[in-house]
Design a protein around this nucleic acid. Structure first.
Length: 843
RNA sequence: GCGGGCGUGGUGGAAUUGGUAGACACGCCAGACUUAGGAUCUGGUGGCUUAUGCCGUGGGGGUUCAAGUCCCUUCGCCCGCACCA
């Protein structure tokens, strides 16, 4: 027998055996459990972040299977996206070829990890099978008024040559290219996510098993504010300016009106004013990055127009075009109250506008003061609190028909048009007579042409010689196809539903989807807290509106895993070095090639740019999947960042072999026999440890405390290593322990435990064995260790029976010499006794 | 600026309702064994003291018989959003 576990032979063997036996095929039987990890973009190779994601999910899927659940655990490929097009441009490979090659490579790697996927449900979003269904969904959205087209300012990424959604603009830059975003006016398709803003917000409060951080981020993103809409009639003409404000109570402190340079009213005004045109151009040239905004000066353009104050007769307010007023939020018009708003204050100082305080804080607060207080200088509002003032002014506005309460959101509609080739074609035809005509359902899918070229800038679909020229489905005249494709976040917004019936000729079958959905456990990176997780929630509700199902929320439990990090290294010149290029010698790192000293940086998320990536394939090749799995599980809890270390993977490898030796060296002596009628004390101790381990491990897995799960099993195996059974009851107890150990480890180390199960003389598969049950008789303590304290300080411990009464405890404890020496002749004021925990003598 | 999170040995991290701080590992130290291995086994490992203790969960204060845990305050780090009226 070998003392070294041969993972190379075992892992492949068991993977094939599982596949042949259709072990992981999901069937519609109850109780069901749907566990899903965010599917990957096929970028080329599996990285450690993927590996961690899938292992976290797999342990849980395997555990639930062992508990008897019918588990749906599918995998697929989020296969549309820009990198494929970049590969085409740079290397002349067709995006489809590039993508399919990557899918093949990554699938191989995934399979070598031994994840329990039902591969028969695999989906590929770039195949017409999938995207034709997405086109169907879009047409339904169109019918329901959820999809619409409008001309608007959009975020234009000059590097990618496409439009981006608001969610994809990070700090004024493209989320992928990092290029400063430009504003362009284009005709684009949008989804009315704002119609669902209230529901998307309210339902967050029922997602009890989502991380608070993700919910908070979504709450902030949706950005609900309550306030009022107030009309300000222009004195010079009959037009009315609508203002949204959250501080209607400060109306008497208003000293000007600010309008966004992008407001339609201003566009009209600019037609006759070159000076205003210049001002608007200046505003638009201003960047939107953090630095730009921090250093940007408040600037205004006095239109010369004025409005009446709604509550003060003959009190005119000047109307400025102001660069800090956003067209995107509220109505694009504000009233400026300089005393109680920092921006208005800065603006008023610059343009010499009145600054009238109308809110008195607790003490003499410096202006601008934005806090709570009592209203003053406010006519009939004087003496009211801010909150009371808001209510009062709103009811008066209603009475005078000058305004009403209003709720405003930061959330914008989702722009889904992209000027790219490698995406789902938008099933629309533009006809000069009929306008935008949906492609009739029987003509779907609108298939991506494959004969495209990437040798010139612009969208290859638009440049294709024939593809876009069609006849109008409604009038039969020549017309043109929409050449934009969908944002790739569309595919990931409903894939979880497709998995329920992946080969259906509908997007998904209602019955199947309602059987499996919601996803019971979703696992993925925190980076999707807003984008993907918000879009998926929106789609679920939009699909409900279209009658696809009755579901409102797609993901019941959400786990956001931390990043996989690694130390970073730089050479003397400051260039990044990969872990392969450095070596530790006498405690210091040196560059292997020339022995020069290496600067060790902090541990950071594995990334190509910092050269601190450890390829998953290399680790599986060198140590095997189970070693990688064990290491990923044992050090940090899943939600936290994980630090990849060479020492850590080595340690896991050693433990795998330790387990192999422990089980195989006893395999022959461990045989099925009847339960002994009498157990020795030592046998009972081992049984107690076994059953407690079962109990705690079960709890740990349920709560995703995987690091503790591993620690408990190490404790059990440590105890078994030094235990030599001498009579039949001890052999029986030992056997029970070994079997439990193998069964409990099976979700984490599926290959090794199959091999051990076979070594123990069992037929396959350990993966089909039920989860061990803890015998409650062994969970009860009969003897406990009581901590003894005098005045709250630990003065020793004592073993006592668990059901000791307070009086008995008091008698025993006060009699102890170690306690007596502290008590001496002092009186005992109090005796605190927490059974099984503590006895505290207070003097 | 707004919102959220975190801070425990040399390191990753344990620690129901407040109840033995440091489980389990990594690393390190000492030893054993050897067919010299990707070993293995045994013992030790918070600090200061030197066999009795004292101090220890970023700092300061508080509540309590008892605080890593609760409250106040302060410092540091990380993440998200941000001219949102």
């Amino acid at each position: 027998m070998s003392t070294r576990y041969n993972f190379r032979e075992n892992e492949g063997r068991w993977q094939t055996a599982w596949e042949k036996a259709l072990i992981y095929k999901a069937r519609e039987t109850t109780p069901k459990y749907y566990i899903l990890e965010m599917f990957p973009y096929p970028s080329g190779r599996l990285h450690m972040g993927h590996v961690r994601n899938y292992i976290i999910g797999d342990v849980f899927a395997r555990y639930k299977r062992a508990l008897g659940y019918s588990v749906l655990h599918p995998m697929g490929w989020d296969a549309f996206g820009l990198p494929a097009e970049n590969a085409a441009i740079q290397h002349g490979i067709h995006p489809k070829t590039w993508t399919l090659k990557n899918v093949r490579l990554m699938k191989e790697e995934l399979q070598s990890l031994g994840i329990s996927y039902d591969w028969s449900r695999e989906i590929l979003t770039c195949s017409p099978d999938y995207y034709s269904q997405e086109q169907k969904i879009f047409l339904d959205f169109l019918k329901e008024g959820i999809a619409y087209r409008k001309e608007s300012f959009v975020n234009w990424d000059p590097v990618e040559g496409t439009v981006l959604a608001n969610e994809q603009v990070i700090d004024g830059k493209g989320w992928r290219s990092g290029a400063p975003i430009e504003r362009r006016k284009l005709s684009q398709w949008f989804l009315k996510i704002t119609d669902f803003a209230e529901e998307l917000l309210n339902d967050l409060f029922h997602l009890d098993h989502w991380p608070a951080q993700v919910k908070t981020m979504q709450i902030n993103w949706i950005g609900r504010s309550e306030g009022a809409r107030i009309q300000f009639p222009l004195i010079e003409n009959q037009k009315i300016l609508d203002v949204f404000t959250t501080r209607p109570d400060t109306i008497f402190g208003a000293s000007f009106i600010g309008i966004s340079p992008d407001h339609p009213f201003i566009e009209d005004l600019a037609k006759t004013s070159p000076a205003l045109q210049t001002f608007i151009a200046e505003c638009r040239a201003l960047g939107t990055s953090q630095k730009d905004l921090e250093t940007a000066e408040k600037k205004g353009f006095n239109t010369g127009l004025t409005v009446n104050h709604p509550f003060l007769k003959d009190h005119a307010l000047p109307v400025y075009v102001a660069n800090f007023v956003l067209m995107d939020y509220g109505t694009g018009v504000i009233f400026g109250c300089p005393a109680h708003d920092a921006r208005d204050y800065e603006f008023a100082v610059k343009y010499n506008l009145p600054i009238l305080p109308v809110v008195k804080g607790l003490s003499a607060e410096p202006l601008p003061y934005e806090g709570e207080g009592i209203l003053m200088n406010s006519n009939f509002l004087n003496g009211l609190s801010v909150e009371e003032g808001k209510k009062e002014i709103i009811s008066l506005l209603l009475k005078k028909k000058l305004g009403r309460p209003e709720v405003s959101y930061k959330l914008r509609d989702w722009g889904i048009s992209r000027q790219r080739y490698w995406g789902c074609p938008i099933p629309i035809i533009h006809c000069s007579t009929c306008g935008t005509v949906p492609v009739p359902e029987d003509q779907l899918p609108v298939q991506l042409p494959e004969d495209v070229f990437f040798d010139q800038p612009g969208n290859p679909l638009d440049l294709h010689p024939t593809w876009k020229y069609v006849t109008c489905p409604s009038c039969g005249r020549t017309a043109e196809r929409e050449t934009d494709t969908f944002d790739t976040f569309m595919e990931s917004s409903w894939y979880f539903a497709r998995f329920c019936s992946p080969r259906s000729s509908l997007p998904f079958e209602k019955e199947k989807a309602e059987f499996w959905m919601p996803v019971d456990q979703y696992v993925g990176g925190i980076e999707h807290a807003i984008l993907h997780l918000l879009y998926a929630r929106f789609f679920t509700k939009a699909l409900r509106k279209c009658g696809y199902w009755t579901l409102s929320e797609p993901f019941k439990n959400l786990l956001t895993q931390g990043m996989v990090c690694h130390e970073t290294y730089r050479d003397q010149a400051g260039s990044w070095l990969s872990p392969d290029e450095v070596e530790k010698r006498n405690g210091d790192f040196v560059k292997i090639s020339d022995n020069s000293p290496v600067k060790v940086g902090r541990s950071e998320k594995m990334s190509k740019s910092k050269c601190n990536v450890v390829p998953a394939a290399k680790i599986i090749e060198e140590y095997g999947a189970d070693t990688a799995r064990l290491f990923m599980l044992s050090d940090s809890p899943p939600e936290r960042d994980f630090e990849w270390t060479e020492a850590g993977i080595e340690g896991s490898w050693r433990y795998i072999n330790k387990l192999w030796r422990l089980v195989t060296s006893h395999a022959s002596s461990v045989k099925e026999t009847d339960v002994p009628s009498v157990f020795t004390e030592r046998a009972l101790d081992i049984r107690k440890l076994t059953h407690r381990t079962i109990f705690h491990v079960t709890q740990d897995i349920e709560r995703f405390h995987y690091n503790r799960y591993v620690a408990r099993l190490r404790e059990l195996s440590n105890a078994l290593e030094v235990f030599t059974p001498v009579d039949s009851s001890e052999i029986w107890a030992f056997q029970e322990a070994i079997h439990s150990l193998v069964l409990l480890l099976s979700p984490a180390l599926p290959h090794l435990t199959e091999a051990l199960w076979a070594e123990l003389g069992h037929p396959p598969f350990v993966v089909n064995q039920p989860w061990p049950q803890a015998d409650p008789a062994f969970l009860k303590e009969d003897k406990v260790i009581l901590t003894l304290q005098v005045n709250g300080k630990k003065r020793g411990t004592i073993e006592v029976s668990a059901d000791l009464s307070e009086n008995e405890a008091k008698a025993i404890v006060l009699d102890l010499p170690s306690i007596q020496s502290h008590v001496q002749d002092k009186t005992v004021k109090k005796f605190i006794y927490i059974p099984g925990k503590i006895a505290n003598v207070v003097l």
